[in-house]
């Protein structure tokens, strides 16, 4: 890989932009295909380029064209939005970062954000509806609410339900969750909308501590994503 190609790849990954490197594995010639950059010594035919673009959209790497071309797709990062800088968030945020998620915590209670020791995580002290408007969750975003407080959780859940977020989870007991669903139904959400919310949140691994609950939530997020792409 030529240095200029590697440089372009690095810049695109840092900017969370989807891109691909296409290599002729017999000759070693190679091209970088970004949203607005195309460099390299491998010339692609129109139809090959269209296949590459399909792979980029699907975030799938593989060989094409009788196996002679290898396409390595670099998808944009997955994102996790956590509402509530609570104890569980202190564990969930770094775990999700290790797993490749770009994590943002929203909590208007600055004392919680400070106490959460989230120095390596982007934290917004906006109200959740405002924070969600800024972050614009998409189909590569997971949203988890952890505050138990309807005035913080509900607006975030409403915004998540109106987005294409691939995972929505909400902490709370069965009873809390039932009340939450009743409130959201009053707000006009259908049963089908509400089925998107994982609540009580997380896989049933009998988690007790904040870090164990974080494992169960991250496990459920990964399971949801992998099920939806296969």
């Amino acid at each position: 890989m030529k240095a200029d190609l590697f440089e372009a790849l690095k810049l695109n990954i840092a900017a969370h932009k989807a891109c691909a490197v296409v290599t002729d594995i017999e000759t070693g010639s190679q091209s970088f295909i970004g949203a607005d950059t195309r460099i390299g010594d491998l010339t692609l035919k129109e139809e090959q380029l269209s296949v590459v673009n399909q792979l980029i959209v699907g975030d799938v790497s593989g060989q094409i064209d009788g196996m002679s071309l290898f396409v390595r797709v670099y998808g944009p990062s997955l994102r996790l939005i956590i509402v509530g800088a609570v104890h569980i968030a202190q564990a969930l945020a770094p775990m999700a970062q290790l797993a490749g998620f770009k994590v943002t915590v929203i909590d208007p209670r600055e004392a919680f954000v400070r106490a959460g020791r989230l120095s390596e995580v982007e934290a917004l002290t906006d109200w959740p509806d405002e924070g969600m408007r800024k972050l614009q969750p998409d189909s590569r975003t997971a949203v988890v609410t952890l505050t138990h407080d309807p005035k913080l959780d509900d607006p975030a859940l409403a915004a998540a339900l109106r987005s294409k977020a691939f995972y929505i989870g909400s902490l709370g007991s069965n009873r809390t969750h039932a009340k939450r669903l009743a409130r959201l139904t009053e707000d006009g959400f259908s049963e089908r909308d509400l089925d998107r919310i994982h609540g009580p949140v997380g896989l049933d691994i009998k988690a007790e501590t904040p870090s164990e609950i974080a494992v169960s939530i991250l496990g459920e997020i990964v399971a949801t994503r992998r099920r939806s792409v296969t």
């Binding site: 790849l9 690095k10 990954i13 945020a93 770094p94 775990m95 970062q97 290790l98 797993a99 490749g100 390596e120």
Partner: peptide
């Protein structure tokens, strides 16, 4: 916390 999967290119 560092993304383990992105580590090789970094």
């Amino acid at each position: 916390m560092h993304n383990v999967d992105a580590d090789p290119l970094d």
